Computed example of a mutant assay.
Amino acid sequence: MPAIYGPSERAALMVLMLANREVPNTELANQHKIKLSPDGRDRLNRDGLLRTRTETRPYVHQITEEGISWCVQDLVEGEPPSRSGPLARAYAELLRRIVRYHQQRGTLVEAIRSGDLESLIRAVYLDLSVKPQDWVRLAKLRPRLNGADKDEVDKVLLGMIKTGKVHLAPDSNRKVLTDADHAAAIRIGSEDKHLLAIEES
């Protein structure tokens, strides 16, 4: 059995594993409704499951490899919160079986992190942008996508622009384009796009 933590600590670890990046404390609270107490945060850091950067405000958290291993073990062996109803317990058993299936085939990490590339792109864009709907260079964005394959990123970007709230554009000043800009560009039709802008949802 994995070590026992409270629902907030368990939820924080799961969200951080899915995010696969540093996550500000405010994002945990505002987007995921997770209130990670100082005691819970310190225990997770002390146990080596979490790294928290406290020199910044807000604090920033990132799960460790030990934390990911704990999450996987918790998905297989952990119990739903004590006050969970029958539906939550049925979901937990279904999830347990899916996790075991992927564990046996060595595809668990891929399965857990599939579909989160768009979220990572949006998070990195927000970090790089100076103002809402700012243009961000793909050459700055791509290196921060945890080594995601260029073709995979291009596929996600092409899907994102179909929403009408994500935009790709060429840099009209060709003289400022670097080798990195050319390498990071995405070709649409007969034109290379170097810049990304995302409207606020």
Rank of each mutant, 00 (worst) to 15 (best):
K175Q: 11
D149P: 04
V109W: 10
I63M: 04
Q62R: 14
L36R: 01
K33H: 14
S201H: 15
Q73M: 14
K150H: 14
T26P: 03
H32N: 07
L50F: 00
S114W: 09
E9N: 00
R89S: 13
A11Q: 12
V23E: 01
P2H: 04
P58R: 03
L177H: 05
W135S: 11
T52V: 04
E110A: 13
T64S: 08
A180M: 06
L158E: 08
E191I: 15
L195F: 02
D192P: 00
E79T: 11
E66S: 11
Q103A: 07
L18P: 05
L177F: 01
V136L: 04
D154E: 13
M14S: 10
P24Q: 10
L49K: 10
L158N: 03
Q133E: 14
E77W: 08
L18Y: 07
D39Y: 10
L87V: 15
H194G: 04
D127A: 12
N45V: 11
V76G: 02
T52M: 01
K150N: 09
S201E: 15
Y125C: 00
A19C: 07
E79G: 09
D127F: 07
L94K: 06
G164D: 04
P80M: 12
T107L: 05
T54G: 08
S37K: 01
S114Q: 13
K175Y: 08
L128G: 07
N30Q: 15
K175L: 10
L36K: 00
K35V: 15
V72F: 15
P24R: 07
E199L: 11
A180P: 08
M1V: 08
Y5R: 03
D149R: 01
E79F: 11
L145H: 05
E27Y: 01
E55D: 15
P2K: 01
L196E: 04
A169R: 07
